[in-house]
């Protein structure tokens, strides 16, 4: 740490602390004392984390067959997978979310779906958010995994075949783990991007962290302070994700040539 605190950095830290102090002293923070807003923020942060984790997991599960189809699949599987990835990656996520929520959501009323047991779930906003964010992950990670599956050394797979390991076991114990290990840093970066995409679902009435700040702005007409708090919250969450993935990467011993 001694190398970090050079004289100019001490100066910059003092300036930064001064700015924080100015924001705290001269800003209007009285709304933070309101238990209603505290509760909203806690729920919102929890929802942001939940959305990031769930959609990353669902999306990765979807991305594995998509990546596999593109890497080694026959053309009739590879072509649709490629089209899916191109469409997801080539259009704005906001538009995908709105298409699902407003478009797909408008098809259901008046059909059998409205009478079915699924309706209480499908009339809410969160299923559409989860589906849209998961499909987005699937599109981006499918492309990442395509490269990852191809980059596993062929000798590994041949050796496993020579050992008589069944195809599914080979995939589960040799091919997939090695592919995932190679792209772990990339997936870490994509998780940060995914966290930064979650504010988009506030546009379809989901009260995650960003929407909470918007609500406070509407209630109290205070503009900057909730937004600054928002930026700090997202920076902390980003830091957590970076640390988590650093820990993940340390778990698998790797030899760097």
């Amino acid at each position: 740490m001694a190398g970090f605190w050079k004289p100019h950095r001490v100066g910059m830290a003092v300036v930064a602390l001064g700015l924080v102090a100015l924001a705290v002293i001269y800003g209007r923070w009285e709304w933070l004392a309101n238990p209603k807003y505290q509760m909203l923020f806690v729920k919102g942060i929890w929802l942001s984390i939940w959305l990031t984790v769930v959609t990353m997991c669902v999306g990765m599960v979807l991305a594995i067959p998509i990546g596999l189809a593109q890497a080694v699949g026959p053309w009739y599987l590879a072509a649709p997978a490629r089209v899916f990835c191109t469409v997801i990656r080539g259009t704005p996520l906001l538009m995908q979310i709105w298409l699902l929520y407003y478009g797909l959501g408008s098809l259901f009323p008046g059909t059998w779906v409205q009478k079915s047991d699924l309706w209480p779930i499908l009339r809410q906003a969160w299923p559409y958010a989860v589906v849209a964010l998961s499909l987005s992950v699937a599109g981006y990670e499918g492309e990442v995994l395509r490269g990852a599956f191809k980059s596993v050394p062929h000798g590994q797979l041949e050796a496993a075949k020579a050992m008589g390991i069944p195809r599914f076991t080979l995939f589960r114990r040799i091919w997939l783990p090695q592919a995932l290990q190679r792209v772990l840093p990339t997936i870490g970066g994509e998780t940060v991007l995914q966290l930064k995409s979650t504010p988009l679902v506030s546009t379809i009435t989901i009260m995650e962290t960003y929407a909470v700040a918007g609500r406070i702005r509407q209630d109290t007409f205070i503009i900057y302070e909730p937004l600054l708090l928002l930026a700090v919250i997202y920076m902390c969450l980003t830091g957590l994700i970076v640390l988590l993935f650093r820990w993940f990467e340390a778990q698998t011993p790797s030899r760097t040539a």
Binding site: K196, L228, T238
Partner: peptide, 11 residues
């Protein structure tokens, strides 16, 4: 790069 684009845009 750590703060969502939407938040930055609004700020």
């Amino acid at each position: 790069r750590a703060v969502p684009e939407l938040v930055l845009i609004l700020i």
